[in-house]
Amino acid sequence: MKKYIYELDNVEHGYGKFRLLVPELKIVRGTSLGLAGPNGCGKSTLMRLLAGLEEPASGRLLYLPEGRKRHSVTMLQQDAFLLKRKVYDNVVYGLRARGEKFNLKEFVAEALSMVNLDPEKFMGRKWHQLSGGEAQRVALAARIILKPEVLLLDEPVANVDEESSRIISEAIRTMKSRHNTTVVVSSHDLTWLASVTENIIKLSNGKILGSGNSNILDLRWIKGRDLLWHATLPGGATIFSSGPRSGETVAVLHPDDIILSRKKPAGTSAQNCLEGVVKLMVTENSGVIRVEAEVSGKIFNIHITKASASRMQLYPGSKAYLLFKATSIVWQ
């Protein structure tokens, strides 16, 4: 069996003026991949391509169990959509489409249980008798029941409560561990995304901007009198960057390239020294701590070690200074 389940090579696709460009992307079988980025960055377009709902305008998209199999890839779209019928009929739909006829009730009960919905209580309910979170979980159960090779989830926790979000996370982990399902999830919520996926890629304006917790500085950049460019953050603070080359439109700052300091440093070579407040500290799978700090109305991700966090006595709510060179901002 091949290592990769998807291979994308110079894929280009879009509508109107929007263009999604994927020079290269390989998705490893049985892993979970997160897609992060703002609205309109191309997450849903990439999902639709992976789901086979659309063919790329150009480039090569290979699904590697030899051609696309209708029943091996399934996708949960943003905002749960249920068919106008009972919960049971919604969940069992895909199995019936496969021509399965036996033990359907047991399979439906199992799928509903996986999303923490009582089968006895919910099987007979109609589509309009569900809350938003319940509808999302029923829609997920309708995909889980298929035990797909690839499960694509487009913003599955965008409009659900914390409890539903936790249950969806649990269901994703179970699918991966029990059925070796490859999961691709998109979300705005980087913290949630990091908790359910092994790798995250970031998209902006239809481009993949590396992986992990890169800070996308989607700001109005102005060329200064010297060689530097500057942009103003929502709260008024200014940041500086070396200029982009022709065709480069998005500024990215890697979290490893930011230095945190509890005291305002003096006499450094870094052009950027910004005061911020720590909002969140999360231990990543790799062991590093991802610090989310709010600086002048924008959230920055910074990577530090556990030892650094302990030495600095850094906690959520702490004031800290972020230092980075103008050249640390990379243009893509």
Partner: peptide, 24 residues
């Protein structure tokens, strides 16, 4: 508009899509 992609990603073939659309 989410109906058709939903049916496709649940594995429905052409005939089932037509019947399900009429049923919806």
């Amino acid at each position: 508009e989410r109906l058709r992609p939903t049916l496709i990603t649940l594995g429905a073939g052409k005939n089932r899509i037509i019947v399900s659309t009429l049923y919806e």
